[in-house]
Amino acid sequence: MTARPSPPDQMRLPLKSDLPEGAEGFVVSDSNRAAHEALADWPNLIGGVMAVHGPEGAGKSRLGQIWAERVGATALHGAEAALIDPLELEGRPVLLDRARDVDDETLFHLINLAQTPGGALLLISREPPSAWSTALPDLRSRLDSVRTIAVEAPDDAVLAAMLDARFAERGIRPAKDVVPYLLRRIDRSAAAAAEVVERLDDLHRPVTRALARTVVEGPPESGALFE
């Protein structure tokens, strides 16, 4: 028996598509423009410490990765920062993602190193450093003086780009009205975009607005799958 070809609006590819990972794949909009512009020329000349904060799934880590690639920064993640001798980072830019998970002593040393020639420290977290608790008075004063830039929850432009990217990864070409429909009905985060696309993909059917409605709201008799 000959296998039936995939419908034209639901082309499937054997492997995930190669998607841009660098700055060329990042969508700048009102929700992240301030942070994007602040990092565009930093730490040119001035060095020091900067923090980007905002809700989960807003693109903070992606912004940090783009910055680290541009300046050749050493990328550290959360508590693993304590495993590295701070002196090995002297005179180098450092990206510290999940910065709130770092112990006080390590964070204190990293902030001090950022003041040396060639040094810089970019902190990525959900809350601004001024809201972090610490028992070290010297660290408290340093955290309160960190320049902070907020990233908001993804707006329509960013969330649409996230959905498009997740569909492209899976080789799916949704109907034109699917993404506008989803923008009004899913949580505004990268995780929500990935989850709804995965559920649609698992159904192995052309991704139409009707299918999206079934996944998001559920069949009329069964109730919604997404709250």
Rank of each mutant, 00 (worst) to 15 (best):
D104C: 10
A210H: 09
V151P: 01
S141C: 12
P206W: 05
E105C: 09
S125H: 03
A210K: 11
T106H: 08
A194S: 12
T208L: 06
A192D: 09
S141W: 12
R92N: 12
L89V: 07
D202W: 04
L122S: 04
R184I: 08
P206V: 09
L203W: 00
I186R: 01
T74Q: 14
L139N: 04
R188G: 04
V94W: 03
A192L: 02
V151C: 08
P137Y: 08
L122I: 07
E152Q: 15
G171H: 06
N112S: 08
L96H: 05
E88L: 15
E195Y: 02
P154H: 03
I186C: 02
A153N: 00
A194M: 03
L113Q: 09
D164I: 05
G72T: 10
R213C: 04
L143D: 02
S189W: 03
R140L: 10
L163E: 04
L122R: 03
S130F: 02
V179Y: 06
V196K: 05
R92T: 13
A157W: 02
K176Q: 15
E88I: 09
A165T: 11
T116F: 12
Y181H: 12
A192Y: 05
A194I: 00
R199T: 00
D101V: 10
R92M: 15
R188Q: 03
Q115W: 11
R166E: 15
V197R: 02
A175G: 15
T214D: 10
L121P: 02
D202N: 10
G78P: 05
I149L: 13
H109E: 11
R92A: 14
K176G: 15
R188K: 08
R170L: 06
I149A: 03
A150M: 09
L110T: 00
H204P: 01
V146T: 05
T116A: 14
H77P: 00
G78I: 06
S130Y: 01
L121Y: 03
S189T: 11
A75S: 14
P128V: 02
A81Y: 01
V196L: 00
T106P: 04
D201S: 04
D103K: 11
R142Y: 10
T214Y: 00
S189N: 07
D85E: 14
H77Y: 15
I84N: 05
A131Q: 13
A165L: 03
P180D: 13
I149V: 15
V102L: 07
L76T: 06
L122C: 04
R213E: 13
T148A: 14
I172P: 02
L123P: 01
P128Y: 09
P117M: 09
S125W: 03
A193G: 02
E127L: 13
R92W: 12
A165H: 09
I84R: 12
I186H: 06
E105Y: 12
L203N: 00
T74V: 15
D104R: 10
E80V: 10
A114Y: 05
T134H: 06
A79E: 13
A191D: 15
D138S: 11
